[in-house]
Simulated scan of single mutants.
Amino acid sequence: MNVPNAVATAEPIELKPVPRRGALYRVQHEGKTSYLFGTIHVGKQAFFPLEPEVTSALAHASSLVLELDTRVHEPFQRALAKYGSYPAGESITRHLSPHALARLERALAKAGIPLSNVEGYRPWLVANILVGGEIEKHGYHRNNGVEGFLLSAAEKQKKRVRELETADYQLSLFASLDDAQQEQYLLENLDDLDNGKAVQKSAGLIDAWSTADAARIAVLARELTSGDTVSATFMDRTLLRQRNPQMTAHIEAIMRSDEVAFVGIGLLHLVGEDSIPELLRRRGYAVEQMY
């Protein structure tokens, strides 16, 4: 066999371009440049590696900035116990109406989770566990979240990793919901599990992220934060509007140093009139959406 000829006549291998994902911004002020990249906290292995504009921006940065460093588990577990659990001896069964408890028991049975496994948890945490489990069943996993990819790259490049928030602060936000609001939050999420909207909402946003579909991302963000439900109000007022100014101030402080920061932050923080890009623009920063 003439090996060289065989190789020469073989079909060329086509390398597909890596698609754009998420949303990428360049932020400039007083001669300094940083980047904002919208992340998702669950995903698929097929989403990686990220495309060259993102990986190049990260390579040129001197630090990676995330909401939390997800490699550090202890502070998160402490905060989860502090804000997500009842004091010893208390049970969720004493904090829910009979109707809500019956709904919860049915949902737990469907998910294959014994009530005894979660009865020490507060309703908001049980709701999030159930929704998270359903999303995982559809192929979206936390270990394929964008933060893990960014952290792995930063480790290889020996970059400093900074946090914009603390786990204690993030989880304390859920403690702002009183018992009645937590029950309603649980019931709304159980409704979304029953009618398929829980997966529809999450998968829709993840899929829009995976194709960098800015128009679709904006539409879904409005849907998630509009209306008078406890879930939408909490997302809009507390998880986004309350946190965005504080995150923006922290990003400003980092940019005042000599660092070029690559800021990976939850996608919804980059969308809307009170988003972090808009807040930076109002403070005199030049903010360009690269895609």
Score class of each variant (00 low, 15 high):
residue 95 H to Y: 05
residue 95 H to V: 03
residue 95 H to K: 03
residue 96 L to D: 10
residue 96 L to W: 10
residue 96 L to R: 10
residue 96 L to A: 13
residue 96 L to G: 12
residue 96 L to C: 10
residue 97 S to T: 14
residue 97 S to F: 05
residue 97 S to C: 07
residue 98 P to F: 07
residue 99 H to I: 11
residue 99 H to L: 14
residue 99 H to Q: 10
residue 99 H to W: 08
residue 100 A to M: 08
residue 100 A to N: 04
residue 100 A to W: 10
residue 100 A to Q: 02
residue 100 A to C: 05
residue 101 L to K: 04
residue 101 L to D: 01
residue 102 A to V: 11
residue 102 A to S: 15
residue 102 A to R: 15
residue 102 A to G: 15
residue 103 R to L: 05
residue 103 R to N: 07
residue 103 R to D: 02
residue 104 L to E: 01
residue 104 L to G: 02
residue 105 E to D: 14
residue 105 E to S: 12
residue 105 E to G: 06
residue 105 E to A: 11
residue 105 E to L: 12
residue 105 E to T: 13
residue 105 E to Q: 15
residue 106 R to P: 05
residue 106 R to A: 15
residue 106 R to D: 14
residue 106 R to L: 15
residue 107 A to W: 06
residue 107 A to C: 02
residue 107 A to V: 02
residue 108 L to S: 03
residue 108 L to N: 05
residue 108 L to Q: 01
residue 108 L to K: 03
residue 108 L to Y: 01
residue 108 L to G: 06
residue 108 L to R: 02
residue 109 A to I: 06
residue 109 A to H: 12
residue 109 A to E: 12
residue 109 A to T: 13
residue 110 K to S: 13
residue 110 K to G: 11
residue 110 K to M: 12
residue 111 A to T: 04
residue 111 A to K: 09
residue 111 A to W: 01
residue 112 G to F: 03
residue 112 G to C: 08
residue 112 G to N: 09
residue 113 I to A: 07
residue 113 I to K: 06
residue 113 I to C: 07
residue 114 P to C: 12
residue 114 P to Q: 09
residue 114 P to S: 13
residue 114 P to W: 08
residue 115 L to F: 11
residue 115 L to N: 08
residue 115 L to V: 14
residue 115 L to A: 08
residue 116 S to F: 11
residue 116 S to Y: 07
residue 116 S to N: 11
residue 117 N to L: 14
residue 117 N to G: 13
residue 117 N to H: 13
residue 117 N to I: 09
residue 117 N to R: 13
residue 118 V to D: 00
residue 118 V to I: 07
residue 119 E to P: 10
residue 119 E to G: 09
residue 119 E to S: 12
residue 119 E to Q: 14
residue 119 E to L: 12
residue 119 E to C: 13
residue 119 E to W: 06
residue 120 G to E: 05
residue 120 G to W: 04
residue 120 G to A: 09
residue 120 G to N: 08
residue 120 G to F: 06
residue 120 G to I: 07
residue 121 Y to R: 13
residue 121 Y to H: 13
residue 121 Y to S: 15
residue 121 Y to N: 12
residue 121 Y to F: 15
residue 122 R to G: 09
residue 122 R to A: 07
residue 122 R to I: 11
residue 122 R to M: 07
residue 122 R to K: 13
residue 123 P to F: 09
residue 123 P to S: 04
residue 123 P to W: 10
residue 123 P to H: 07
residue 123 P to Q: 03
residue 123 P to D: 04
residue 123 P to N: 06
residue 123 P to I: 11
residue 124 W to Q: 00
residue 124 W to D: 00
residue 124 W to K: 00
residue 124 W to A: 00
residue 124 W to E: 00
residue 124 W to H: 00
residue 124 W to L: 00
residue 124 W to F: 00
residue 124 W to P: 00
residue 125 L to V: 08
residue 125 L to T: 06
residue 125 L to S: 08
residue 125 L to Q: 09
residue 125 L to E: 04
residue 126 V to S: 03
residue 126 V to Y: 04
residue 127 A to G: 02
residue 127 A to W: 03
residue 127 A to Y: 01
residue 127 A to K: 01
residue 127 A to C: 01
residue 128 N to S: 15
residue 128 N to G: 13
residue 129 I to E: 07
residue 129 I to D: 05
residue 129 I to H: 10
residue 129 I to M: 14
residue 130 L to C: 07
residue 130 L to V: 05
residue 130 L to N: 01
residue 130 L to I: 01
residue 131 V to D: 08
residue 132 G to Y: 07
residue 132 G to N: 09
residue 132 G to L: 09
residue 132 G to T: 11
residue 132 G to P: 08
residue 133 G to H: 08
residue 133 G to K: 04
residue 133 G to N: 05
residue 133 G to Y: 06
